[in-house]
């Protein structure tokens, strides 16, 4: 009976799916006509790429590589003709609405982020070929030292002796499996900046932190490191290292527990022994009489 019901349910379900997926997913005309408010440039495409990798890539795969996850129907490749035939407005509408396995991203990412993603997808549109000129990466060198009382980093940014003014420098702390962003400073006219280490910056168990400084994406990859700066109190007491056992092999058992056990057991045995001695005494006394 249960099986029958399940089969019927499955039939209905599959019928439902086929009717949904049989139809083309078309945005209403008014929505499809909405124009992307963001300019199509390197900055928005770069932002869009970051949003795409975090929210979309797990299903849709890498654009142009046709490597989506296995789903029926398969999530379309972002660089496919079918995908790029959508207007910006209709992609925006689809991101907001969702259908079947494609969730709605309303509330998950902001409108701006959606437009950024759309710009990133448009990068693969052949109509946009040549529109994005790859800017040559700027060059620069970074140097940093810690000030005398370990509260701030003195940063110098220059290129071949000339100071780099008004350049953002990103500060990160090295952690076990990645880099933790802790802030950003902009260099002044002399190419110098002072980064105050925020209160509550966590170090490792020894209270020390390794700082890594980098320029933004428009620069060639370069970084400066300031290592082993004391930022917090070391963790002196590690409760995890204490053996936490009630009763186990002798070398792991707490002393008080072993003592208590042997003391009580000994007491019981002594009592029994005393009683046995007393009984034998009574017996001997009886034999005398």
């Amino acid at each position: 009976m249960k099986k029958k019901r399940l089969i019927i349910a499955l039939m209905f379900l599959s019928a439902g799916f086929s009717t949904i997926y049989g139809q083309e997913w078309v945005a209403p005309e008014s929505e499809a006509a909405v124009v992307n408010p963001l300019p199509f440039n390197n900055a928005t495409v770069r932002e869009g790429k970051a949003v795409y990798e975090k929210n979309c890539k797990s299903c849709h795969g890498d654009p142009g590589k046709n490597n989506p996850i296995v789903l029926t129907p398969p999530p379309p490749d972002m660089a496919s003709e079918k995908m790029l035939a959508n207007t910006d407005g209709s992609i925006f509408w689809k991101l907001n609405t969702g259908r079947g396995a494609m969730p709605t991203f309303k509330g998950t990412i902001t409108d701006d982020q959606m437009w950024q993603v759309i710009n990133f997808i448009r990068k693969f549109d052949p109509r946009n070929a040549g529109k994005l000129t790859e800017e040559a990466l700027k060059k620069g060198t970074l140097a940093a030292t810690i000030n005398s009382d370990s509260t701030s980093l003195d940063i110098t940014a220059d290129f071949q002796g000339a100071p780099l003014a008004g350049v953002p420098v990103f500060v990160q702390v090295k952690k076990a499996f990645g880099m933790l962003d802790i802030g950003k400073v902009v260099t002044d006219a002399n190419g110098k900046a002072i980064f105050r280490i925020p209160d509550g910056t966590a170090g490792n168990a020894e209270g020390k932190a390794d700082f890594v400084l980098t320029f933004g994406d428009e620069f060639e990859k370069t970084q400066a490191e300031v290592q082993g700066i004391k930022v917090a109190k070391p963790v002196t007491d590690n409760p995890l290292a204490r053996g936490n056992v009630l009763w186990s092999t002798n070398d792991r058992t707490s002393g008080w527990l072993l003592f208590a056990y042997f003391f009580v057991t000994g007491l019981v045995w002594l009592t029994i022994l005393y009683i046995v001695i007393q009984i034998t005494k009574i017996k001997k006394a009886g034999q005398k009489n």
Partner: peptide
């Protein structure tokens, strides 16, 4: 594939996402 897991060192007060590698 969905960014469910964060893993790290409590002493460092940092965790890294296994999917996005964001810390």
């Amino acid at each position: 594939p969905n960014g469910v897991y964060w893993f790290g060192d409590q002493n460092e007060d940092a965790v890294t996402n296994g999917t996005t590698k964001e810390t």
